[in-house]
Structures are given as C-alpha cells and as structure tokens.
Amino acid sequence: MSAKPFLKIDHVDKIFPLGGGKEYVALRDVQLDIRQNEIVSIIGHSGCGKSTILNLIAGLDSITNGTILLEDKHILAPGPERAVVFQNHSLLPWLSAYQNIEMAVKKVLGEELSNSEIRDHVMKYIQMVNLDHAKDKYPGEISGGMKQRVGIARALSIQPKVLLMDEPFGALDSLTRANLQDHLMRIQMQTGNTVIIITHDVDEAVLLSDRVIMMTNGPEATIGEILEVNLPRPRNRLELQHNPEYLRCREAIIEFLYSKFAKEDE
C-alpha cells in the first residue's frame, strides 16, 4: 500500500445551523486516511454523525471546516467517482432493474461506449450480483435484498473510485443481510474497489472490514479508536466464528460501544 493516502479526511468539522443563532456541532476534528482498495467501516451509536461523514465524502453535504481530498483533489460536490449505495436502495421505481443501471451507465460512460458496449457493460454488473433472471423486473416486483443488489450493481457500474455505503443492509432481515455481505466481499475481491461502509452492526463491521473506525457519541463526535482487522481474505463467516482474531476485534468494538461510549435510549 502506498504511503500517500487515497482519500484524506483532514481536520473536518461539520456544524449545522439550527436557527436563532444556535448551532449543532455534529463532527469535530475528524481525521482519517483511507488507502486504495481498502474496506473501511464506520461504526457508532445513532447520532454519532457516521452518516454525516459519508454525506461529506459523497459531496451531498458541505464541509464546515477542514478538507476532504480524493487523490489530492478537493471534494466540493457530488460526483460519479464517489458512488453511493443508499440504505433504502433508492432505485427509480418506473425503471426496470436493467434500466436503472443503464441510466447511470449512459450518463457517466455514455460518451465513451457504443450502444452495444453499454449493453454488455450493464449485463456484466447485473451478472455480478446474480440478477440475470430479474433484470427486466421493476423494483416493486423484487425483494428488498434484490433491490439492494441492483443498487450495488448500479453504484459499481459507473466504476467509482470509492464506493460509499450508508447502512446498506440495515433494512434487510439477517439471512438476506448475510447473503449480501458475501456478495459484497466477493465482488470487492474481483473489482478491488475502495469501500466505505456505515454500519451499526458489530459482526458486519468485523466480517467486511480491513479497518473499523469507531465514532464517539455526538454532539462533537469524532473518531474514538481505529481497529485493524487482521483476517485473511476470502473470509468465511462459519470459519470465523471461533477465530481468535475475529473474537478479539468483536470484543474490542463491543467494549468501545457499550463500555467506553455507552449510550442510553438508543
């Protein structure tokens, strides 16, 4: 891994004005370097500003103080090099699964690709999430897990430098969630994407991540600890159950969330 950070979050504050001269300091002095091809998860209690960090990286929200640099370029607005997978999939319900991906591909890569290349490109990502059979279905006709797979395929199809995932599996049942986590790990090994995942699920964080970023509670939330997960890939959830490193990471996060920064009324 290169010494130079791929994505650099440098002394970032995020302050929301509340009106009447009051303000809410959501994030204070957040400092994080993310390496290329890394999977990083950001975990914390609700209200710790973890989604705010993601929105700042995505450019959907503006930074109050500090800078975020992607390959030395300032992030000032949203862009397709930072694709987002939203929690509630946010597929356009009037387009089929295929058309949802095609729309993104046409917009971002349409000038470089011919029509048949666009078709091949869309199909490649549909196959990557094993949805050939459902490609012509509309979002209203497929399950929540399939919708999220289309969302992931759409995000990856525009070949982003960073894939941002905002609690991507939070709305799914645990069996479907496990299935999608496996999909994500397999795809990331194929594509080598840099992935940032917001989560509140301890097992998900350990299973998926190279590093787990633990956030303190808001207001003025910041990074509390950073945990390296030294587990080889590909990872298998069954084999990990009794793995000492897995258990160590799990305990460290639980210790952080429920002892050092316990929060009532979640």
């Binding site: 995505a58 607005a77 397709p80 987002v84 946010s90 356009l92 917009k107």
Partner: peptide, 10 residues
C-alpha cells in the same frame, strides 16, 4: 433519495 441519485450522477 431520487434527487441524491441525480446529484451523484451529475
């Protein structure tokens, strides 16, 4: 959400 999709895709 749809508007955020529009923003990300520019």
């Amino acid at each position: 959400d749809y508007l955020n999709v529009a923003k990300v895709l520019q």
